[in-house]
């Protein structure tokens, strides 16, 4: 879990971290650096854990995730899901800016001119190393104003187990925030199927507000992820 960006890390600390993170110090442009040993660097003196991009990380247990979600529900009731979504959205916006900086430095090409699928894989790999799960992006329907993202092994859903409803609001917000910032258009996201509903993986629909509003309405009416997909492919939207 990314705790905070460390853009303000003093130079002396930075060089100390780099000396401990030998893989990065030796091979700063190595792209396949996502093994746990390569990606993270423990600083025992400081008691900190930093990743390849010098962001401060914390290791969070499943108990932490359960406590976070149940604590929020206790504090704000049903608004907890919206709150998690908004937290994710803000995180996604900030991470898009952060990502653009390191991607362009590491890949020596502009985010606007590179192949979108390559940039997206580059963006998600740190999340995979951090334990947020593997992903799969389906850009096929981008021209129709929506796309699907599958998450395998969601940290939130895996922790909460089968609770019979979608629970990955943080992820939905993260995708909405990141992609909105990336393409400079307001996008929303909804989880249409979730590991916590007994499915084998989580599926997110990302798109323009009208598509997401429609999907949300159909979901409330009892539509499954497959029903929603069919309706979208058939061009059904709310008017």
């Amino acid at each position: 879990m990314v705790f905070t960006s460390t853009l303000t890390t003093p130079a002396s600390n930075l060089s100390q971290n780099l000396s401990q993170q030998s893989c990065k110090a030796l091979y700063p442009y190595k792209r396949n650096h996502y093994r746990f040993e390569d990606f993270f660097a423990f600083n025992q003196a400081e008691g900190t854990l930093r990743d390849w991009h010098e962001s401060r990380n914390i290791l969070a247990s499943e108990d932490f995730i359960v406590a976070l979600i149940q604590g929020l529900e206790k504090e704000v009731g049903q608004a907890a899901s919206l709150l998690m979504y908004n937290i994710g959205q803000e995180w996604g916006k900030q991470d898009a800016t952060f990502f653009q900086g390191w991607f362009e430095e590491q890949y020596q090409q502009s985010l606007q001119t590179c192949r979108p699928t390559l940039a997206l894989e580059a963006w998600w790999w740190p999340f995979t190393s951090q334990g947020w799960g593997n992903w799969e992006v389906d850009l096929e329907n981008q021209q129709n104003g929506f796309m699907f993202i599958n998450i395998f092994d969601s940290a939130v859903a895996r922790t909460l187990g089968d609770v019979g409803k979608p629970v990955c609001y943080l992820y939905a917000g993260l995708f909405a925030g990141f992609f909105s910032h990336l393409i400079k258009k307001d996008l929303s996201c909804i989880e249409t199927q979730c590991y916590a509903m007994g499915e084998t993986y989580c599926k997110f629909l990302l798109g323009k507000q009208d598509r997401i509003d429609a999907a949300s309405f159909w979901q409330t009416e009892g539509a499954t992820a497959r029903d929603i997909e069919k309706k979208l492919y058939n061009g059904e939207y709310l008017r």
């Binding site: 396949n32 996502y34 699928t117 390559l118 997206l120 894989e121």
Partner: peptide, 15 residues
């Protein structure tokens, strides 16, 4: 873990 899992996603990304 050190190469192929990452490379697989890049191979797919660039088709």
């Amino acid at each position: 873990d050190g190469l192929l899992l990452w490379q697989r996603t890049i191979v797919h990304a660039v088709q």
